[in-house]
Design a protein around this nucleic acid. Structure first.
Length: 752
DNA sequence: TCCTCACGGGG
DNA sequence: GTGTACGTGAGGA
């Protein structure tokens, strides 16, 4: 076979030995190729125990030898190397070894084949490959011609097919599938099964898609049975078996369809639910309804995630960014010849009081000056924590060193090496976004790629602080936050030295005022000075015409960090920490708050704000009238809240728990991490779950409850122009005079 | 008044 | 096949 060039689509273990690679050739052919690819895991420990392990493994299909490899912290150590010509055997043999020798330390033992391949050949999903292969498809040479860091990689002519039922199976039983391929739409009735299967199989054969994009193809929970269920794809395969009609969902006839059950886990201080997964061989299955942050970064973001992490597309689509950055660290380690510790699943033990005390030092927060402020610049450090790790070479193996020492020439750590190209690519994409004209099709795609990078960078920091992480170390985590605080304080000094006032600081942002300064150029010297004093770049998020830092609701004399809203010079608004930003705020309330703020935003300067109040009051009265007249669509009044635990584990029956209870009563069991939707209703139990079979009765709506929610949200934004004692008088700065409830009479009525 | 629970932040 | 920490605010008891 002559040399082939094309894009790498997929890579997985070959049961016959080595790996299977799917290549989308420049000639448009999809080829299944095979490549010998031995993999090795290592064990370290006392010599007699390693000899025992050697004897233990002798009956297995493995080559054994003594060797020396580098541990990240200890440097070179003696190890027993176990090499497999058939990577498919490695997980099973390792499990046996780990069980029999729990006292030994294992390395490179639980690594995905794609990452190992990436470390050796530089492959990643959709990498441009040049391949020499024998006539029966065995690769003899493989060269990767590009890197994950290209801004404009050559776009492969991917074929996509979407398969979706017409409704979410959680809400109703679907009756047909809508299938789109090559610009055509087909509707396939789910009943009867025989023509469905024959037609779907024909479509799959005719279009032979590289990507099968579904809604609910993965599945999730079976709400009738209360356990994990078979999603759309598995149900189709069940049917195919029942009717004995082959359904070629897999492109690889010898490949397995991999099914992973659903689960709930704790992450980021909350519980997350992940539905069951179905992975195909030789083509990708992506379930848009079961893909982490698909709405945030879409298919472009998923492909970008796969490129930079080297995780297979189907995995990249479903894992959290934490796993993505971890994958990148693993590849870095493998390339450096550093051993990757086996990742034990340790139960998290409660932290001791000392640990709690130690970890108490997070980002620096400087309480804001409550009130309205004009001509305020918001300066943000760009990707602060990742930049600190890269700039000051903070990595588990390089801490502790103090701030000044950091500038000295130390060997680059594992984490900075991993982050550096990511930071550079993100910056380059962001810069290009600023220059691309609005009509350029690359804009949307770049935006999504930037978003995917952001999440990788953000989680890298959190991951450092997790004690079970492969390359985590709490001291490194603390070093990052310590540097962050140091940089923020240096920035404050720089601002004050140049005559500015810092109104508020929050982890990586500063809100700054300076007499006579109102344009970006006016703030430029400050930014340059901050960059010079900290070594980190700062960006100008914008200059507010006016911004309001809100007081605490519990005690209006106290400021709270990060509750504010304001209007930039270009007329756009920014809000943080208030009702609109919360996922559990009903759409109608959020829209009202946005409308009220848009009304205030028409004030070009602070002095014009009081004149906006009559208009704001009219908006509010109109909203209330809408509600009372029953003209608000019920869907816009739905509250959506996550559930952090199983139903019987709730100590207090919160509205969300009561709504979940109603669903459970009709057999729809929600698992931790899933969310429940409900309306506030009159009487007991005060809520009505949105997903109950019977539609809610609009007459039972708790209108007073919604009025309270509306007026509370209105009060949050209107207090800037409203004083309870001096009606309509503006309070330009300093504490607001408004008290909680000043706008309304407590019974849902508006104070006139 | 105290306790429980959900949420934010990053663009 | 994951991963922070902490403060605020709302609702229940």
């Amino acid at each position: 076979m002559p040399d082939l060039t094309g894009w790498l689509l997929d890579l997985y273990p070959d049961p016959q030995g080595g790996v299977v690679l799917w290549l989308l050739g420049d000639d448009g052919e999809r080829r299944r190729l095979r490549q010998p690819f031995p993999v090795t895991f290592y064990a370290a420990g006392p010599s007699p125990r390693l000899r025992d392990l050697w004897r233990f493994l002798q009956t297995e299909p493995v080559h054994l030898e003594r060797a020396e490899r580098r541990d990240l912290f200890q440097g070179p150590i003696p190890v027993l190397a176990a090499r497999f010509d058939r990577p498919a055997d490695q997980p099973r043999v390792f499990r046996r070894a780990a069980q029999a020798f729990p006292d030994l330390t294992f390395y490179d033992a639980d690594l995905s084949l794609a990452l190992r391949h990436a470390a050796v050949f530089g492959t990643f999903p959709l990498s441009r490959c040049q391949v020499a292969a024998t006539s029966d498809g065995i690769i003899t040479d493989l060269q990767v011609m590009d890197t994950p860091w290209e801004l404009d990689p050559a776009r492969p002519p991917l074929r996509a097919m979407t398969i979706e039922p017409e409704v979410d199976p959680f809400h109703a039983e679907p009756t047909y599938l809508q299938v789109c391929a090559a610009g055509r739409v087909y509707c396939l009735s789910l009943e009867p099964a025989r023509p469905l299967l024959i037609n779907l199989a024909a479509l799959l054969r005719r279009h032979d898609p590289d990507l099968v994009l579904t809604q609910w193809g993965d599945g999730g929970t079976d709400h009738r049975a209360g356990h994990s269920s078979r999603g759309l794809l598995l149900r189709l395969l069940d049917l195919a078996q029942e009717w004995n009609i082959p359904l070629p969902l897999n492109r690889d006839p010898q490949g397995q369809i991999v099914h992973k059950p659903d689960r709930s886990y704790a992450a980021y201080g909350q519980v997350i639910y992940r539905g069951a997964q179905v992975h195909l061989a030789g083509r990708w299955h992506v379930d848009a309804a079961n893909t982490v942050m698909f709405h945030d970064y879409g298919l472009d973001g998923v492909l970008e995630m796969a490129r930079v992490t080297a995780l297979p597309v189907q995995t990249a689509a479903r894992v959290s960014p934490g796993t993505g950055i971890s994958a990148m660290q693993i590849v870095t380690a493998l390339r450096l010849g550093v051993l990757v510790p086996y990742h034990k699943q340790q139960a998290e033990r409660p932290k001791t009081a000392l640990e709690l005390f130690r970890s108490d030092q997070g980002g620096l927060v400087y309480q804001p000056l409550i009130g309205l402020h004009a001509d305020v610049a918001e300066l943000d450090f760009v990707s602060m924590y990742p930049s600190i790790m890269a700039r000051f070479n903070i990595s588990p193996e390089t801490v502790p060193l103090d701030f000044e020492e950091r500038n000295a020439d130390f060997e680059r750590g594992l984490i900075p090496r991993t982050l550096q190209p990511l930071l550079e690519k993100r910056l380059a994409l962001k810069q290009r976004l600023l220059t691309l004209p609005a009509w350029d099709a690359r804009r949307e795609s770049d935006r999504k790629r930037v978003s995917a990078h952001k999440w990788l960078l953000v989680t890298c920091f959190g991951y450092l602080g997790y004690k079970n992480a492969r390359f985590g170390r709490i001291e490194a985590h603390e070093a990052v936050t310590a540097y962050g605080r140091e940089c923020l304080l240096r920035a404050k000094e720089a601002i004050e030295d140049l005559g500015g006032t810092v109104l508020h600081m929050y982890v990586d942002g500063l809100w700054v005022k300076k007499d006579g300064a109102s344009t970006p150029e006016d703030f430029r010297p400050m930014m340059d000075e901050i960059a010079a004093r900290t070594g980190l770049p700062v960006g100008l998020d914008g200059i507010y015409r006016w911004v309001a830092f809100l007081p605490s609701r519990q005690d209006s004399r106290l400021p709270v960090a990060n509750r504010y809203f304001g209007v930039f010079q270009d007329g756009s608004t920014k809000m943080r920490g208030i009702e609109v930003r919360r996922r559990d705020t009903p759409a109608w309330i959020a829209e009202a708050q946005i409308e009220l703020l848009a009304c205030l935003a028409q004030a070009a300067q602070v002095e014009d704000l009081p004149a906006r109040l009559p208009q704001a009051q009219r908006i509010l009265r109109r909203k209330l009238a809408e509600l009372r007249a029953g003209r608000v669509p019920l869907a816009k009044l739905v509250v959506r809240q996550g559930l952090s635990r199983e139903l019987d584990a709730f100590v207090t029956r919160s509205p969300a728990a009561r709504a979940a209870g109603q669903l459970a009563a009709v057999g729809k069991h929600l698992r931790p991490g899933q969310s429940v939707r409900f309306l506030y209703t009159l009487g007991d139990p005060g809520v009505y779950a949105w997903d109950l079979p019977e539609p809610p009765d609009p007459r039972t709506l708790d209108l007073r409850r919604y009025q309270v929610l509306l007026l509370r949200a209105a009060e949050t934004v209107l207090q800037v122009g409203w004083d309870a004692r001096v009606r309509g008088k503006l309070l330009p700065a300093g504490p607001f005079g408004v008290q909680q409830g000043a706008l309304w009479d407590g019974r849902g009525g508006l104070i006139q």
